[in-house]
Amino acid sequence: MSEHNTHIDEHRDDEASKLGMWLFIFTELLLFGGLFLVYSIFRAQYPANFHESSLELSVTIGVINTVVLLFSSMTIAMSITAIQKKNKKLTLALIGVTILMAFIFLVNKYFEWGHKFEHGLYPGSELMQLLERGHHLYFSLYFFMTGLHALHIVIGMVLLVIAYVKVNKGSIKHDKFVFLENGALYWHLVDLIWIFLFPLLYLIS
């Protein structure tokens, strides 16, 4: 260790922290993977119904949300570059932009879901009970998968807000930023899941 005032915790192990985060990400991948599997089996069983239902979704909102998530994924990756280069201001700005993008995503989702709720289409509604089995399954999966994904967005936002505060306070800095790294990994996971959700639910018909 050098003579500088860099205090390194005796029990600190960034590699292990990251490995732990990855192990958690694996469980998340398999959770969504299971849902994708359920989706594909039912899609194989009710191809016509799944096709008709997917036409109900707005591709425009889907595209906007995809662009928003991809962009936010880049900004959070950049925030790590910024902290490594000791640029605290830029790090804060980039985390801030990412949180803003997450918020825009949720606002979009609110309008998308709200539109369906207005037409009486929501889990457990009377309309849902009357739908054909294939349509019912499609919309149940749609609400469950995008809902679970949106929950992950909210959790990711909380993590990023904590990271923002920590960077601001100086407890995350150029030689100690594993919390930001793990938060970013979680945020990329959210993006990764959306990369598959978007074509499967919105595009393939």
Binding site: L185, D191, L192, F196
Partner: peptide, 9 residues
């Protein structure tokens, strides 16, 4: 997802 995993992650 390969790009996200290798570069972003």
């Amino acid at each position: 997802s390969y790009l996200v995993l290798s570069y972003f992650m």
